[in-house]
Design a protein around this nucleic acid. Structure first.
Lengths: 198, 198
DNA sequence: CAGGGAGGTTAGCGGTCGTTAACCTGAAGG
DNA sequence: CCTTCAGGTTAACGACCGCTAACCTCCCTG
């Protein structure tokens, strides 16, 4: 896989700053002038790169959902002959990496979905649903005692747990990335394990 | 305890509808005319009851944090001689009740805090901090192997888990309130239990 | 029965915001 | 050297939105 070493394009700069600002103050709370200023150009200059403010949010949210789903699919594909426990661990790890590395995106992900045009929102929801179903399948292999609806609820709840990283204080105050990742991982496993004891 | 049977005041109607609308479309995404329409009056009519749109959000958020903290304090006060496990269960139960009964408020709670005036935001954060500290204390009694920072992270994560109810589909699609509450409770306990195995 | 406050109404002001229009500039290509 | 075009700029428009002003109408009370 060719890791990119080239400088980020202007488009990518804009998306990154827009994500940060949207996460901080909400989609409606940020003006295009602000986004422009964050990358060193003025508001209307953004329209050389995006059709409008909505388009930025759409691209961000579709990108997030797609990235999560693609990553999960890749992990599943690589898991031939691997015990389901290890596959679940891999899914959890992937989600945690994303939550820790792209905190603004995780925040947007479940906060601004309703601001999208109908078609975009449907697409995002479809990607999210596929991602969830993928988890549900593996979770039920590891914890066969879980019914399907219970497993789905449990998956959503664990997402809530893993996505709580934005609330864990600013990056500096955390006890270290690796430690936090391991804590979240253990807790997710513990939560799944406890979901089915009835 | 005198349960109120009297009709809700106009003020309370407004707050309830405002909470729902803010949760659905975000603070900036809702106009005062809409809030007014939701209770059968026109936009500017709201100013007979509130100083402004900001004041509604402030009252909602302060109310939420206060209610959570007050409930938790009451539960602690009632727990004289009760084993810490039971106290923790009581805290979890209280939080779940709130999350399931007032889903719009839970959504607002960690989504629109930054839209508040400085003084209000400080107050809310202070109430939230007290609530967290209260949990941390009990959690460490039940799970003494947890260090203090770990326990605090764990508490935040469990809040993420418990507050995930808004993502569990519309009220009808849930497997029943009691069942959901029990599932969340078990998972929260499981998550705490797994937090400290190192 | 006067009057006054509580709780509405509509009209409209002022500011903000997304977007477009019109123009400029520097670098690449024939 | 002229053209083209990507990627900027500023000015300005139109819509929307929070809020105030001015007014109206019950209902309660002395």
């Amino acid at each position: 896989m060719a890791t990119r070493t080239d400088a980020p394009t202007r488009r990518e700069q804009i998306l990154k700053e827009a994500a940060r600002l949207f996460a901080e103050r909400g989609f409606h709370g940020v003006g295009v002038d602000e986004i422009g200023a964050a990358v060193g150009i003025s508001g209307p200059g953004l329209y050389r790169h995006f059709a409008g403010k909505d388009a930025m949010l759409a691209e961000l949210l579709v990108g997030i959902s797609g990235q999560l789903l693609t990553g999960a699919k890749r992990r599943l594909a690589e898991a031939d002959g691997v015990p389901p426990e290890a596959v679940l661990d891999s899914l959890i790890e992937g989600h945690i990496d994303f939550a820790l590395d792209d905190r603004p995106l995780i925040t947007l992900h479940d906060r601004e979905l309703d601001r999208l045009r109908d078609s975009d929102r449907k697409l995002v929801r479809q990607l999210q649903r596929q991602y969830v179903e993928l988890w549900v399948e593996i979770v039920r292999e590891v914890y066969p005692e879980l019914t399907e609806p219970t497993a789905r609820s449990a998956v959503h709840s664990v997402f809530g747990l893993l996505n709580s990283t934005p609330h864990l204080g600013r990056p500096g105050s955390l006890p270290g990335r690796g430690v936090t990742a391991q804590l979240l991982h253990r807790m997710a496993r513990g939560a799944f394990g406890a979901a089915g004891v009835e």
